[in-house]
Amino acid sequence: MNKTILVVDDSASIRQVSKLVLTAKGFEVITAEDGQDALAKLDGKKIHLIISDLNMPKMDGLSLLRKVKELPAYKFTPFVMLTTESGESFMAQGKAAGAKAWMVKPFQPDNLLNVVQKLVP
């Protein structure tokens, strides 16, 4: 069975590009527009990896990360921040909240795949 990845980003282009890159390598991709949407789409599904933007309307990436870490089913699901934000303080917050990696946009598709393959063996 294919591994499933949840991509959360308020930018449609980022969602599409991510989906394209990942589906090309055989991953199942679910997309969400913001944190709330993402929580709604988790819905007990088996998710192998969550990739989220930081700045999003309604619920930002860090809040989503913290919420996800509170959910028993997704507590150990690897979480990757994919954001234009490269500030040290944000990264520190992400690290503290339990993110596995921090990727700065724009990303090279190969790099995204490297990260995904490292976290979802």
């Binding site: 590009v17 700045n55 946009k105 724009p106 990303f107």
Partner: peptide, 16 residues
């Protein structure tokens, strides 16, 4: 095409 697709990410940055 994949490379070109990556370039579309600028929209996200410009938008922000």
């Amino acid at each position: 095409v994949a490379t070109a697709l990556m370039q579309f990410q600028f929209q996200d940055r410009v938008s922000q």
